[in-house]
Design a protein around this nucleic acid. Structure first.
Lengths: 133, 133
DNA sequence: TGTTTGTTCTATAACTATTATAACACAGTA
DNA sequence: TACTGTGTTATAATAGTTATAGAACAAACA
């Protein structure tokens, strides 16, 4: 998969790596069983430090998105039916919507935007199209 | 208005203050013309430092939400038809939705959650109910 | 033996968040 | 005049985070 880091933005690099993987998972650019680039390779590719990439991968493992294997590298995990507290997520969503709302965006525009985003998502409990099995 | 800071969460205190104000604006707990608590009073109330509150207020002023006046304190600004780049906002929304999606939440549940949140919002280009003309 | 992978350790520099203390500037009130 | 209440500015200290750097370790495979 391709990583694009927006260095200008305020988010930490390791967070951006993590976000890119989550996004790739939702949009079907990454499937369970797929391998992520080796830490050193990605670091070189992005011209950042090995440890920064490692931190991003560690975060992803902590959240259950990938498995890290000393031998075979980082592999996208099978989606599990665990789901963490919805509370913090809902609060984040509330604040994000409130920001747009106070800037004058209509609720209709927001739901349309949400639908538009969702239309780009694909089921995650599946395997890469074209794979055997 | 009432401020509730969730200290346990990872967000900086000044960011939480800012978020609370934005949320209060969207939900009709705060109206243009309303005054925010004096910096020192709020700091004492929250048992945090004066500068932390100040930073939150500064952020709100930078974003056009409030005016800061040496004499009369912090006052909620009239909503202006400026709106900053939607790009970063959309990207944040994309990532937030992707998180829920990869955790198994359905798109239907998401749009319902959004609608539920939006149903608690009120028009912002108005004045406090019961105020004179 | 050498290569490739993640892992751990130590160190450093820069930046951020928070606290602390003090003083300043302004405008109203006593 | 003096006092009060407001935001503002300056300086400093402490703790934590972010990113970098270099080195070494561990496991598995060719």
């Amino acid at each position: 998969m391709q990583f694009v880091l927006e260095i200008a933005m305020g988010d930490p690099l390791y967070q951006q790596i993590r976000d890119q993987v989550v996004l790739a998972l939702a949009t079907g650019n990454l499937f369970p069983g797929d391998g992520l680039p080796p830490i050193r390779a990605l670091a070189a590719d992005l011209s950042i430090n090995l440890h920064t990439v490692h931190k991003g991968y560690e975060m992803l493992e902590q959240e259950g998105y990938i498995h890290l294997n000393r031998r075979i590298g980082a592999v996208v995990a099978q989606p599990r039916p665990f789901r963490q507290d919805l509370g913090p997520w809902q609060q984040k969503l509330r604040i994000l919507l409130a920001e747009a709302w106070t800037q004058g965006m209509s609720g209709e525009d927001m739901t349309l935007t949400v639908k538009d985003i969702l239309s780009g998502f694909v089921p995650v409990d599946t395997v890469r199209p074209g794979a055997e099995g």
